[in-house]
Design a binder for these strands. Structure first.
Length: 552
RNA sequence: GCCCUCGUAGCUCAGCGGAUAGAGCGAGUGACUUCUAAUCACUUGGUCGCAGGUUCGAGUCCUGCCGGGGGCACCA
């Protein structure tokens, strides 16, 4: 019996109890809380329903709890129901009912943990979107890991996710990038505010290799060539880094196409027509304060060129046109000022600002020897995604970056994470998977068939077995809350608790028959528990994009 | 000044309004002739930044203050 089914049982039992006594059944919430108490003496599960409802009913909470407990213990699935504290009802499941979780997990397989909380919802998930003027640095890497995991979690809840990367290939940064490439190719120093670093020379050289006469072109044509080809090459490297990192996008959307196709212009015209823009000091302003922004924003600059936000608005409109019901933006903390204007932009278009959701992720500090590494993208002293992967590996990097809430600034100590030891929690989780794989291989070698449906899972009565089973049962609601709260780090945290429950079980409970022993029903039941545990570890690690090794 | 975010063990971080606040690392002691010791058990370690408020119940929600980080462009 999963917690969700148990919650339904508690709810229906409570409704019946109240109805019997002629009390108001409407005080029972739609969704009843059933949680796993921290203290094992408080049972397998506990519900606070009596505490929540007592006041509204005018009944002492302990009386209500007593009635509920009496009715619950009369059901087959529940072996005991005790009243504790101010009015908790502490429940223990019958072994057979509890073991049903194992059966359900094995039956669901890869689908265990999926749900329909976001069924059919079309989500546009935009993340990373780093300028194609250099490699992805550590901040973008955090989003690559967390955003990708979030996309996987959404998909597990039935959402239709489009992973999107917005390419800022218009604007002055790109011009500076092109000029930097040209300077590097000519062996000159980069222009002021230009880009430095070996990659600039490399890309410049590659542009020249493809177009040997590039440097002798007229200035404007030369600029265009380096700009176009340079961005293409840089983007190619970015895509390749992301792919190696296990993060693939469905759409790479070019800002330039919005300008070139006239979409930006058309969107601005639409805003002007609907009176959302006004002219002041030669520029056109969006009345974004009317929709909650801090200040009005310039959309068309006094020089007649569109400001960055103009393309943003057009881009949002394009996403909606393509069917996105929810447009999620994953931005760094240095962009938090965008929330107001993006929502205002949606409202100004006559759209629902609720379709815009911005997640702000805090910065990553890199430490070496406990000392912070200062980085400057323009100076070329950057720790890139590829550097990080080279230093600690994809699995460790993804895990390190998805393990913590994106609300927290994160310290990544390269020395610590580069130690390939159990300092790294990812090994703890992966090791559990490898151990389980080894046991299941062993069962295969012994010719034990663990697939039988007649296996008596009610034999799993050891404390460690019960704890492991209940932990497995938590997985679906962990995934669900990770999706609803947009907090994929909950999956990582859960996996560590699952690995811990498994390692403790392994320590206390022999799984395979020893020596010449006959295979007992308990061996088979435990093997099913192992198979279920391994399934959940694999499913969870996949949500994080981290490998589940069979051997370590 | 205004906005966002964080403040929990020596360090890095979890913590869905619930009961005696957790994990890893660090420090210490044990456990492999037996399914993977990258593991397990035990010990050490806390005014959950401070002060109010809401609640049967607050690390969690609200307000104020203190401290760290990040923003507050006709840059992108």
């Amino acid at each position: 019996m999963t917690p969700a089914v148990l919650a339904d049982l508690v709810r229906s039992t409570a409704l019946a109890v109240l109805a019997d006594r002629g009390l108001d059944t409407s005080v029972v919430p739609e969704s009843v809380t059933v949680q796993r108490p921290r203290n094992p003496e408080h049972g397998d599960y506990a519900t606070n329903l009596a505490l929540q409802s007592a006041k509204k009913l005018g009944v002492p909470p302990r009386d209500l709890a007593t009635w509920l407990a009496e009715a619950l213990v009369a059901t087959d699935a529940i072996s005991s129901a005790d009243i504790a504290g101010p009015g908790f009802v502490n429940l223990r499941l019958a072994a057979d009912a509890q073991a049903g979780i194992v059966r359900e997990t094995l039956a669901a397989g890869e689908r265990w943990g999926t749900g329909d909380a976001m069924a059919g919802l079309k989500v546009n998930l935009e993340f990373v979107s780093a300028n194609p003027t250099g490699p992805i640095h550590i901040g973008g890497t955090r989003w690559a890991a967390a955003g990708d995991a979030l996309g996987r979690v959404f998909t597990a809840q039935g959402a239709e996710v489009t992973r999107e990367y917005y390419i800022n290939d218009a604007g002055v940064q790109i011009d500076r990038f092109a000029e930097s490439l040209i300077a590097a190719t000519k062996g000159e120093a980069p222009p002021e505010d230009g880009y430095k670093g070996a990659y600039v020379s490399d890309i410049g050289a590659e542009v020249l290799r493809r177009n040997p006469s590039a440097l002798s072109l007229p200035t404007e044509e030369r600029h265009q060539l380096f700009r176009t080809v340079g961005v293409e090459l840089m983007l190619g490297e970015i895509k390749s880094s992301l792919h190696a990192f296990g993060t693939d996008f469905d759409v790479f959307f070019s800002e330039l196409t919005l300008h070139n196709s006239g979409t930006v212009e058309a969107t601005v015209a639409r805003l002007k027509d609907s009176g959302q823009l006004y002219e002041n000091e030669g520029a056109w302003w969006l009345r974004s304060t009317e929709y909650g922004d801090d200040k009005d924003r310039v959309v068309i600059k006094a020089d007649g060129r569109p400001a960055y936000i103009a393309a943003d608005i057009a881009y949002f409109a394009d996403k909606r046109k393509r069917g996105a019901q929810l447009c999620l933006y994953l931005l760094g903390a240095d962009h938090h000022g965008y929330i107001g204007r993006l929502k205002a932009a949606a409202a100004a278009l006559g759209d629902d600002p609720g379709a815009v959701e911005v997640l702000i992720g805090q910065m990553v500090n890199l430490l070496s020897d406990g000392k912070p590494l200062r980085m400057s993208k323009r100076a070329g002293t950057v720790l890139t995604m590829e550097d990080l992967v080279e230093a600690i590996g994809v699995d460790a990097a993804r895990y390190a970056l998805t393990r913590s809430s994106t609300d927290s600034t994160l310290d990544v100590d390269l020395d610590l994470w580069s130690r390939r030891s159990n300092d790294n929690p990812v090994y703890y989780v992966q090791y559990a998977h490898a151990r389980l794989s080894s046991i299941l291989r062993g069962a295969g070698d012994l010719g034990i068939d663990i697939t039988g449906s007649e296996v008596d899972l009610a034999l799993l009565t050891h404390d460690r077995e019960g704890d492991l089973i209940r932990t497995i049962g938590e997985f679906p609601r962990v995934v669900r809350s990770a999706a609803e709260l947009r907090e994929p780090h909950r999956v990582a945290h859960y996996l560590e608790s699952l690995a811990s429950a498994y390692h403790k079980f392994y320590d206390a409970c022999r799984v395979l028959p020893q020596g010449d022993e006959e295979t007992s029903p308990l061996n088979v039941a435990r093997l099913q528990l192992c198979a279920a545990s391994r399934q959940v570890l694999a499913n969870g690690l996949r949500l994080l994009g981290v490998g589940a090794p069979e051997r370590m």
